[in-house]
């Protein structure tokens, strides 16, 4: 019995198998956001349809649901009705804002006309807001509390349950 070989071999085997096992089932494309717990990067962007400039600061004082999406993204079609319905139900107690990037105003307008909307949608033309929020794919949704701090983030299409769970955090419950 060669103990050196055994020891070194066992070490390698344990390390390799252990790490790979822990890695199983994780999605390598899901990035943990370092923005959690920080104040959301401020922006003022043009609203689709009205041309008004909407700034994030103007919503201080209530929780904000910040949804990054695009018309070329499949799952965004899936979650759109969820967002619209919840924004209607919650009324003015929570502010919903859609941020569209890598897209054209014309397509967004058509999307909103076809599928309805109940909250403002702004367009991030050079994609800089998306970069500041560390967007890796769409849809991604940030939840801000009333002080403008990011308290939750959801990757992929939202369900009403996801929304409620994150909003609870944003409302400080």
């Amino acid at each position: 019995m060669n103990r050196t070989v055994l020891a070194v071999g066992a070490l390698i085997a344990l390390a390799v198998i252990g790490i790979l096992f822990l890695g199983l089932g994780k999605n390598p494309n899901q990035i943990e956001s370092p923005l959690l717990g920080r104040v959301a990067p401020s922006f003022a962007l043009r609203e689709v349809g009205t041309g008004k400039t909407i700034g994030l600061e103007q919503f201080r004082g209530k929780p904000v649901v910040l949804n990054f999406w695009a018309t070329w993204c499949g799952p965004c079609y899936e979650e759109h009705p969820v967002l619209v319905a919840n924004a209607r139900n919650l009324g003015s107690s929570v502010q919903f804002v859609g941020v569209v990037f890598q897209d054209t105003e014309e397509k967004i307008q058509r999307f909103l006309n076809d599928r309805g909307s109940s909250y403002p949608t702004v367009i991030d033309e050079a994609g800089k807001t998306a970069i500041a929020y560390g967007i890796g794919g769409v849809p991604e949704t940030f939840f801000l509390d009333s002080t403008g701090k990011i308290v939750g983030k959801h990757d992929g299409p939202l369900t009403t349950d996801d929304l409620r769970a994150n909003l609870a955090k944003a409302m400080g419950q």
Partner: peptide
């Protein structure tokens, strides 16, 4: 905010 320039 209306009329204010867009700002990223």
């Amino acid at each position: 905010a209306f009329g204010q320039a867009a700002q990223v």
